[in-house]
Design a protein around this nucleic acid. Structure first.
Length: 236
DNA sequence: AACCCATGCAACCGCATTCTC
DNA sequence: AGAGAATGCGGTTGCATGGGT
């Protein structure tokens, strides 16, 4: 009855991920996708729990992740959505492409909470948009006209992000084509790691990713690993 | 220079829900 | 139908780092 345990806890490694482990995980996911997280560690040669692998991938290694502080517009959007639905970080993250629930949760606890307290704002009360750039906010909330609209959108099933393209990591490894630098062509919507880096010995980029984030080194699908690579398949 | 403390963030934990047998 | 594993998620912890003294 039922399934097998997710992992043998005695053999599972914990703590910070090493560059080697990251390489193995990325390599495996790029070639195989993630049909079963439980089986993944064994197949990828990792002494990690499947849960840990999923977390590492979704929160840190996914090529479409943005790194660094949230923009004013993103921050304002988080504040607005949080005012409506509370600590449902996954829902909030779904509205911010390239951001993870964990990241937003951390950002909320470290930056926004503090900021709001400082401003002596009751988090449950209506929050105005006075601190964000009007242009940025309009760009983000183009389809949001009031809080009721936003609330409705948040609870629909197949919700598109408010800005930018969505990305399903069920299709990892499929090479996408890029219409312009901000839009992956529908149906071929997948980012991929540069082949030269993936197949060669040069995994140095992972060290950089560790330190600065994927986005900083332009490995994400939206801004391109060099525009020409994304358009022609060749690195600059 | 050395220590202490505050901060930020990656990773873990545990619970709830979903899925499989 | 129900038991139990898989998955997803929010809360929490622990460590690295930077700033202050």
């Amino acid at each position: 009855m039922g399934r097998q345990p997710c992992c043998d806890k005695l053999l599972v490694k914990k703590g910070p991920w090493t560059v080697e482990e990251d390489k193995k995980l990325i390599n495996f996911l790029l070639n195989n996708g993630h049909r079963c997280w439980r089986a993944l560690p064994k197949l990828a040669g990792l002494r990690r729990c499947g849960k840990s692998c999923r977390l590492r991938w979704t929160n840190y290694l996914r090529p479409d992740l943005k790194r660094g502080l949230l923009s004013d517009a993103e921050e304002q959007l988080v504040i607005d959505i949080h005012a409506l639905i509370g600590n449902i970080w996954s829902k909030i993250a779904a509205r911010l492409p390239g951001r993870t629930d964990n990241e937003i949760k951390n950002y909320w606890n470290t930056h926004i909470k503090k900021k709001l307290l400082k401003m002596e704002i009751d988090e449950s009360s209506t929050i105005t948009h006075q601190n964000s750039s009007k242009d940025d906010y309009e760009l983000l909330g183009d389809i949001i006209h009031n809080d009721e609209d936003l609330f409705n959108i948040l609870w629909t099933n197949d919700e598109p992000p408010l800005v930018g393209p969505s990305w399903s990591n069920n299709n990892v490894g499929v090479v996408g084509t890029v219409g312009d630098k901000n839009n992956i062509v529908a149906g071929e919507d997948l980012p991929t790691w540069p082949l030269e880096e993936k197949n060669g010995d040069s995994w140095m980029f992972l060290d950089y990713c560790q330190n600065f984030g994927v986005q900083d080194f332009r490995f994400d699908c939206y801004h391109g690993f060099g525009q020409s690579f994304m358009e022609t398949g060749h690195k600059d």
